[in-house]
């Protein structure tokens, strides 16, 4: 008896954690309108356009085409995005509604040249 009670008390913490995450999941997944698509190209280890202007407060989709002969990873620490785009492929990257500001991104595989930022205004 004591054993069962003690164990369940300990597992209770874990149950709580799961419940909190579950709650966050349901509140977070709100319905979104069809977001606008913004084309971005990777060529010669660079993004073009390197500066992307978007309206603040609206989610959007970056349609990133990699024209180089090797894969690139689109990464933004600020936006918590990591997406590998193989050579010659196009990837759709959904970006959440942003507050006004500047959000840098870079190509993880060529961080020196592949730099850009999203400007939400």
């Amino acid at each position: 008896m004591t054993c069962i009670r003690a164990v369940s008390a300990r597992h209770w913490t874990l149950v709580m954690v799961v419940a909190v995450f579950g709650l966050m999941l349901t509140t977070g997944a709100s319905a979104q309108d069809k977001p606008t698509e913004i084309p971005v190209t990777i060529e010669n280890n660079r993004f073009s356009p390197a500066e992307i202007k978007v309206p603040a407060g609206k989610p959007f989709v970056l349609v990133v085409t990699n024209k180089d002969a090797k894969p690139e990873e689109f990464e933004s620490k600020e936006l918590r995005i990591e997406k590998v785009i193989p050579a010659g492929k196009t990837a759709n990257i959904r970006v959440r509604a942003l507050k006004p500001g500047s959000y840098p991104f870079f190509g993880e595989f060529n961080p020196k040249t592949a730099q850009g930022r999203i400007i939400a205004e």
Binding site: M24, L25, T27, G28, A29, Q32, P59, L79, R80, I81, E82, R94, R96, K99
Partner: peptide
């Protein structure tokens, strides 16, 4: 958690 926020599954914040 960060990835889920990036994907829009969890609400993001400052």
């Amino acid at each position: 958690v960060g990835r889920l926020q990036g994907l829009g599954v969890l609400p993001a914040g400052d």
